[in-house]
Every structure is written in structure tokens, then in C-alpha cells.
């Protein structure tokens, strides 16, 4: 996995949110965007490390990359 070249269609900043806030914020944004769009989720919640990939697989989307940043992670998800 590597950070996509294309800019995300939307970025969801869920830093500071407790579980399951980040995942629900991601799901909410994925509802709004078109197929092929990339959504970037920013989360500092450890649970997101497992929650996000599990849901992305379940929903048939694609997790393009998880970027480790100083105090949070960026999850790049493409809507299929």
C-alpha cells in the first residue's frame, strides 16, 4: 500500500473522536461520494487500525494506504 497520487475527494478529520466515531464518520462520508472517489480519514483512535480495514473489506471498498503520521493515522479508502 502506498499513498495515492490522486487527491482525496474528501478528508474526514476524526482526530479526538472516541470509537466508533471515526469509522462512523468515514461511513457517512462514503455515503456521499461517487464510486471511484477517495476518502481520507484522519484518526488517532487505536481501534481504527482494526475497525476501518474490517469495514472496508465488508463493504467491498478498497483501503489504498494507511499513512503513519506524528500523532495520528491517515486512512485512504476508495469507494468501489
Amino acid at each position: 500500500m502506498s499513498t495515492p497520487d490522486t487527491d482525496p475527494a474528501a478528508t474526514v478529520d476524526a482526530r479526538g473522536a472516541a470509537c466508533p466515531g471515526p469509522l462512523m464518520d468515514l461511513i457517512g462520508k462514503m455515503r456521499e461520494v461517487d464510486s471511484g472517489a477517495i476518502v481520507c480519514l484522519l484518526s488517532d483512535n487505536e481501534q481504527s487500525v482494526t475497525d476501518v480495514p474490517e469495514w472496508v473489506e465488508e463493504a467491498g471498498n478498497e483501503l489504498l494506504a494507511v499513512e503513519e503520521r506524528e500523532d495520528h493515522r491517515a486512512f485512504y479508502v476508495e469507494k468501489q
Partner: peptide
């Protein structure tokens, strides 16, 4: 329920 368990709080 939207996530992988039956309530938001584990």
C-alpha cells in the same frame, strides 16, 4: 447495527 458489534461501546 452499523459496526462489527451490537453497540458503539464495546
Amino acid at each position: 447495527y452499523p459496526i462489527q458489534r451490537v453497540h458503539g461501546n464495546p
